[in-house]
Design a binder for these strands. Sequence first.
DNA 1: GTCTATACCTAGATAGAC
DNA 2: GTCTATCTAGGTATAGAC
Lengths: 206, 206
Amino acid sequence: MAYRKTPAEISRLEAAREHLIACATSVVTEVGWSQASVTAVADSAGIAAGSVYQHFASKTALAVEVFRRAAGREVDVLGGVLREPGSPVERLGRGVEVFARRALENSGLAYALLAAPAEPAVGAERLDFRRRYRALFADVVHEGIASGVLPAQNTEITAAALTGAVGEVLVDPLGSRDEGANERLLAELVAMALRCAGAPPSPQHP
Amino acid sequence: MAYRKTPAEISRLEAAREHLIACATSVVTEVGWSQASVTAVADSAGIAAGSVYQHFASKTALAVEVFRRAAGREVDVLGGVLREPGSPVERLGRGVEVFARRALENSGLAYALLAAPAEPAVGAERLDFRRRYRALFADVVHEGIASGVLPAQNTEITAAALTGAVGEVLVDPLGSRDEGANERLLAELVAMALRCAGAPPSPQHP
DNA sequence: GTCTATACCTAGATAGAC
DNA sequence: GTCTATCTAGGTATAGAC
């Protein structure tokens, strides 16, 4: 009679795998993809380098999994915000604010997702990630055009600009990093985003 | 009596060095930083790998020089366009158009300068490069505000957004690559940039 | 299943002949 | 000064003991 894994064994394995992914994510967040060697990740997870290969066929496979998990969370959050009630312009503003706020608060991860040097396989995931971000923004802009609150425009370009703008501000943080400065930065980013989409100037952003 | 290099010897050496830089630039443009090994660059220049070290102390030093030359040219071109006669809004539009056009026409180089995975030393140069681009845009936006044709805004953020937006469109080219599409893309990028800076809608971009 | 030890490969850099 | 040949370091992946 063939041996079968018990549920307990399966969940132990999965837990180990999840732990490895979580530790790898931390390492990448702290030192970037290029410095996240198999040895460094294994050390962080408290296992031997060789043991990594019990869970992933290659370092690349692990890196891709790490990227997909983190990117998926960010896309889900942004998607959720953009689907909340409100006018397209309000939702667009909140979406940009949430995107940027999360990036500022966890800049290591944001940098890893958006810009940090990485191997080609991760680069391909990154392209897909940015496309999904742009698609989310483009949908809201499109809604705004359809409902007449935004002028006609190439929604792909506006969405790409919003993604690129937040990324640019993030990668090379402007000015100081104190709390007040971050809040002002966010407000000004949102104002810029609304202008970019063609929303009429609002009294609170004179 | 000590030996001195003759002028002819000096210029021959400099010529060899320049040739090496030019070939390295080509290689980087074609295959990116990470694939531009010393061997590949030396082959391209028609010399042995070891001979590279007659001209540069390390691969990193060569890479930095390649980056600085190319980035310096781009900054000079953009600076020149932004200083030509015209209103701040006109100049801003032309600047974005020139930036994007050059990037589209030589996308390999633009990608290498703006986004391609690279070693840390090149990454540092890239940060500086992007800062210089942003400073140029920020100056024109500032002029526009001072002369009353643009609304008050954080010029650093607007400038960062313009840089990021063009980079984003560039790194993942939208749509087809035929001539007409490129021209439409450029027109729409410029329209987006002017909205982003808060320029009033013009009749030619309804 | 996990560890230790190691094989293997790539790529930067160096030494010595010519 | 340039080439050929080689050294070395760092990192992925594997083999075999436990």
